[in-house]
Design a protein around this nucleic acid. Sequence first.
DNA 1: TACACTATTGAAAATGATTTTCAATATCAA
DNA 2: TTGATATTGAAAATCATTTTCAATAGTGTA
Lengths: 140, 140
Amino acid sequence: MTAELWLTQLHENGYRLTDARRAVVEIVEQSTRALTPVEVYDLARKKYRALGLVTVYRTLEKLEELHLIQRVHQPQGCQAFVSAGHGHQHLLLCQNCGRVEFFDGDDLDALTRYIAQKTGYQINEHWLQLFGLCMDCRKN
Amino acid sequence: MTAELWLTQLHENGYRLTDARRAVVEIVEQSTRALTPVEVYDLARKKYRALGLVTVYRTLEKLEELHLIQRVHQPQGCQAFVSAGHGHQHLLLCQNCGRVEFFDGDDLDALTRYIAQKTGYQINEHWLQLFGLCMDCRKN
DNA sequence: TACACTATTGAAAATGATTTTCAATATCAA
DNA sequence: TTGATATTGAAAATCATTTTCAATAGTGTA
Ligand SMILES: [Mn+2]
Ligand SMILES: [Mn+2]
Ligand SMILES: [Zn+2]
Ligand SMILES: [Zn+2]
């Protein structure tokens, strides 16, 4: 249902609504895994046969620009995307099935103050990511 | 001086010591910034003119395999390498000059227990990275 | 609804990064 | 010193991403 919202966002930012974009948005928005451009291409082509891979790249670029999706960095590679988190959130990734969750509530203030003091750095931001096994994959 | 140790490591693992490897090792080992393969190539060629870019890729691959270097993930890209940290350490990166430091002492046990409990995930590892401005760059 | 403007498209070509192939050469254990 | 072979750099191949371009489709306006 949020797919509609993404399309609205695109439209409000002066982008036209096309079948190609609709297909890409629908796939990426409802995925619980991070998807690479080719994966998006393969899946979206089931909805819209004529889709070109170039258009997938171009659409992902725009969705990232509008902060609707974000790139996911992993040991296996850094070319995959997921729906963006809201506010200050971090990723939790399943090492087996690739499932992606967001979490918040981390408090690194004490740590960053300590490191800043110790190193002389002014610390502006942080990346935090947890890896593990999701409930489903633990059963195997 | 650790460059010698790296070469010893390579040798002990059955790899031959060549001028090409020596040049790459010397450059990467003493750099305070993460370097891309091309950057390593350009710098190392000042020590060993005949060096080929292919050999840089192959040498970085081996150094990573032996855990002497590690890949650095950044917003601008994920193809750069630095000397690996020791034990459980994380990276602190200067957003201006690219300087790299390691820190430890983060304690995410409470957080991971909380997230594990809340999501049902079994959490195995984490990535943490701090970004900011190093002492030198703050002065500008 | 029809139209005109122009953003968007997919195919093909171009670019950039990395990997593979290969014959010549350098390393090193014996 | 020498022979087996690991390593090399150049060139070609591969893979991911970007650019170019002419045809087409989306949108606001009449
Ligand atoms: Mn945080
Ligand atoms: Mn840690
Ligand atoms: Zn899973
Ligand atoms: Zn700096």
